[in-house]
Amino acid sequence: MALIELKNIHKYFKMGEENIHALDDVSITIKEGDFTSIVGTSGSGKSTLMNIIGLLDLPGTGQYFLDGINTTEMNDDELSKYRNQKIGFVFQSFNLLPKSSALKNVEMPLQYASSYNSTLNDNLIRTMALETLEKVGLSTRVHHLPNELSGGQRQRVAIARALVNNPKILLADEPTGALDSKTSEEILNLFEELNSQGVTVIIITHDTKIAKRCKRILRMSDGHINEEKSL
């Protein structure tokens, strides 16, 4: 079943006088359990595509079905709810709250989820966060602040935060961009492991080496998308 279905997506930006056609008639389908990478040079439109898939931005025209529901008709609150429930983000620069401990960072999505799910009390939130941190191999460092952790550990915290609410999609934007090759390898192994457990993973990257680890590669250039490798 198609988890993500983009139909004829266009996206325009205005930069000064110039009109940029960031996405030009993009149509893709990603199935549940896929391990997909979207590659492309900077300016190819891959970040715009990621923002739209992640419901951080809306397409100019076209339709986006996520888990069978048309998201282009949603209001801001519904989009927030969908981000919370269906999507986990992993960013290149980790984007952790610097003054909150690893545990607090991982708990955060559940705190917002608790307004949709009344069974999520503070005890359950703590338990779920600790379990997820253990899953990414950080059970010994839960009370450390991000600046007390190494880059790889920070990215693990970010991955735990993305996973804690059991999303359908893990959306990673250059997840190894700020890490050395050894740590990158560990993070990619973690993604593979998560994928084997059934999480749909989408990695946006410019690095073809990383892309090759994925089961499927989509290449972006000048706002167009092409299948480069498929299952």
């Binding site: 992640g54 951080l56 801001d76 609150d77 927030s80 709810k81 981000r83 919370n84 429930q85 983000f89 984007n95 952790l96 709250l97 955060m108 999505p109 917002y112 989820a113 935060r161 609410n165």
Partner: peptide
């Protein structure tokens, strides 16, 4: 600003 972005990305509503 960045914190606001992070919170919104993980599901905070405007009202939150």
């Amino acid at each position: 600003t960045r914190e606001i972005g992070i919170r919104r990305a993980v599901g905070a509503k405007r009202s939150d």
